[in-house]
Simulated scan of single mutants.
Amino acid sequence: MPVTSPLAAKVKALRAMAERPDTPADERAAAERMLTRALRRAAETGELIEEQPAGGHAAGRTYGPKHDETEGLSIVDLARLMRQDIKLARKLGQAAAEPGAVVVPGLGALPRAVKVSVRTSTYAAGGRSIHIRLYLPADGWGLVDGQRHGRTAKVPGPVLEAALAELRDVHGAYQADYGSDLSRDLIMRRYLGGVDWTRPGEPD
């Protein structure tokens, strides 16, 4: 895989952080989780020839690559891991701003003015959810003119969409679907929720 590939740059940066002896333990753990996701995506797209990370499908069930090692954790603990993953991804982006550094796409491209929240909810019926939201600044960083719900509106441009895609990877890495059937309105997932964005003036 060429070193100019954005995914190759991400794998290189994450592997370096995970293997560096002076990396704090929590950052090393987050780097290893992100590296697993990056290698999984690379294997799916054919950019890397490496062993497929954990996760996959079994008897109508689907598991995220980090499901097995986090099985039994509370929704609060899962949200904490997601926050760590996001924090590390943004830190890599800040490091990439230095001359000669490896450029890491996705969350690493977000400016400091963009805030990210990870919120959890539990329901009386027993369900639970994790919501990840990007809060854009008033100037609408990352948005371009496009169509939304059939109307002309501001929509995510390529850079912002790459960050949202990485957030969806973070959100799905710990997920499990135990046999949902949307035709019967049957949802059997480890948690609900998803990823979205907003900016001042739009409903929170």
Rank of each mutant, 00 (worst) to 15 (best):
G140I: 01
D26M: 06
L160M: 08
W197Q: 10
E71W: 05
P158A: 13
R28M: 08
E19C: 01
A25D: 13
T23C: 08
V76F: 04
G108H: 07
L110D: 10
L167I: 08
A101E: 14
L78Q: 03
T70N: 15
G201S: 09
G126V: 06
T120K: 11
G172A: 12
T45P: 02
A8W: 04
L164T: 04
M82P: 01
T23S: 10
G146N: 10
R189Q: 12
Q147I: 09
L35V: 07
H67Y: 15
G106F: 01
R15Y: 00
R41Y: 06
D169H: 11
R61W: 02
L136H: 11
L167R: 12
S121I: 00
A30Y: 08
Y174R: 15
P6E: 05
H131C: 02
A79F: 01
R61S: 09
T70Q: 09
T62A: 14
A30I: 03
P2W: 06
P111W: 04
R112V: 13
R80P: 00
R61A: 11
G46N: 14
P105C: 04
R90T: 09
L186A: 08
Y63E: 09
P21A: 13
L35G: 07
K66F: 00
I130K: 07
A163M: 09
E166N: 09
A101N: 12
S183Y: 02
V104Q: 12
A42V: 09
S129K: 13
A113V: 12
P24C: 07
E202D: 07
G60S: 09
D177R: 14
L81S: 06
T62I: 11
P6Y: 02
E47V: 10
A163K: 08
T70V: 07
P53N: 11
T23I: 04
D139I: 01
E166A: 07
A30M: 09
R148I: 00
P156W: 04
V195N: 12
R128C: 05
E69F: 01
S5I: 01
G142Y: 11
T122C: 03
R28A: 14
L81V: 00
